[in-house]
């Protein structure tokens, strides 16, 4: 029976970014993102920071470790 899922938001300090040189465009991150804020542009995935709830799921899902949290400022 379906139960549902819960995601803890706000676990990361900032929205993570995709390192284009490591991304293979496999879309694992896109499929796991509960906020639907990852898009595939061309052959690479890209995180749209405005919609990011900073749960860190994409970070753990990425098989190429292409996603990392940056220590930059929070999005405007």
């Amino acid at each position: 029976m379906a139960a549902g899922e819960a995601v803890r938001a706000g676990l990361l300090e900032h929205p993570p970014t995709v390192r284009a040189e490591l991304c293979t465009g496999c879309t694992q991150c896109l499929l796991t993102c509960p906020a639907g804020t990852i898009e595939r542009r061309g052959l690479k995935c890209e995180i749209i920071p405005e919609g990011c709830i900073r749960c860190g799921r994409c970070l753990t899902m990425c098989p190429n470790e292409a996603i990392r949290e940056v220590n930059g400022p929070a999005p405007p």
């Binding site: 549902g4 899922e5 819960a6 995601v7 803890r8 709830i53």
Partner: peptide
């Protein structure tokens, strides 16, 4: 009450799937 609460348990009993975001904090 999020996933620990009563409403979530109700949904589990009737097989309705929802996606919850629990902000921290």
């Amino acid at each position: 009450g999020g996933v620990r609460g009563h409403l979530f348990r109700c949904l589990c009993k009737i097989g309705v799937h929802v996606s919850l975001v629990e902000p921290a904090p």
